[in-house]
Amino acid sequence: MSTPGINVAYIARLAELELTPEETERFSRDLNQVLAHVAELDKWDTADVQPMYHPLPVFDAVRPDEPAPSLPREAALANAPQQQEGMFRVPKVVESAH
């Protein structure tokens, strides 16, 4: 794998995560060092290896589809920074095309 250098400012926008200029600079340095190290994984031949997404074999881990009580609305809303009329309050989502 190549290590072209991570564009931290771009990735931070993808992650919806505001960083200070100082953090952007520091993370670029730290993470380029980490990425240079993990490039060593290339030395292991994995052409015929299946990726392991789970540490144990899991088959169809589904429960019976039976109605059951869920968290009461008041409990689900109790930690919301803003709520209104039994709902989570959010800023305006639909923005006008410019």
């Binding site: 794998m1 994984l41 292991w44 994995t46 290896v49 299946q50 990726p51 392991m52 997404y53």
Partner: peptide, 12 residues
Amino acid sequence: AYYTKAQKVRAL
């Protein structure tokens, strides 16, 4: 390059 490769090495 990263995630799938890492999961393959995990299998090893």
